[in-house]
Nucleic acid binder design. Sequence first.
DNA 1: CTGTATCCACCTAGATACTG
DNA 2: CAGTATCTAGGTGGATACAG
Lengths: 147, 147
Amino acid sequence: MPYTPVPRTPASGAAVPSATTVAPAQACPIGPVVDIVFSRWTTPILWALHTFGRQRFVELERRIGTITSKVLTQRLRQMERDGLVLRTYYPEVPPRVEYEISDLGRSLSPLFAVLADWSQANLERVEEARRAYDAPGETGPVTSRRP
Amino acid sequence: MPYTPVPRTPASGAAVPSATTVAPAQACPIGPVVDIVFSRWTTPILWALHTFGRQRFVELERRIGTITSKVLTQRLRQMERDGLVLRTYYPEVPPRVEYEISDLGRSLSPLFAVLADWSQANLERVEEARRAYDAPGETGPVTSRRP
DNA sequence: CTGTATCCACCTAGATACTG
DNA sequence: CAGTATCTAGGTGGATACAG
């Protein structure tokens, strides 16, 4: 996911430099949630927790399969901080830690459902569009391509 | 957006190294769509095109406010390739180019609506969770924090 | 088991200058 | 106007080693 080096919502006092008659910048209303929910690993992690329930660190690691423990830790920490997952620590030897999705995390389910639906319905269209774009073939009368 | 250096969907033949009794890795079903739709700038761009309709490069640039022309070009190219936006080139002097959202791009509207709703309903909860996490205060009996 | 600590690779994006 | 060319910065993520 984007790391948001500049604000997704431009400073409200900033106003467009000057010049032309373009409507003043309005903020994209879904910027923050995108930063919170979507990154390379947050969706797979949330999905795994949602689908398989409360589980230990290693289970999660194995379930996702290609993630490293370092990154899994990083993502889980952020998600815990954001209130999307809950971490329970059992002071045993060897130590045991369990992660589960929180109510807040679970509230993302409808979002995931919509995403899955869109994916199901339109992913093939995207791939088709890419093939068409990449093909050396014709360029329409008005719509152009790369030089 | 994640650049997906490794597949979001682990190679199906790969299987978890060996060992334990964890369920085999199943793929997070929404990985690809996340890569297509969510990045630092794709959402603001799509939102601007959806909200203000067909417009020229500079209008878009001013509307979004903080994006540079280089990045705007990059993102628009990718979105054009993915079939989410349409580009129309008018060979005039000075040149004129107009961008608009495609039907495929418009099909993302319900998704954006759900995101906006979730944001409206839960963003404050996230911020609250962060404040609680960052606060030096109490740690519950089982749920832990950073060391 | 559950992480940390390093080091490195890659990508996105910002700043700036320049072109047809 | 609509980009391209360069350079730089910063973050996420990968690989590996190691610790409590």
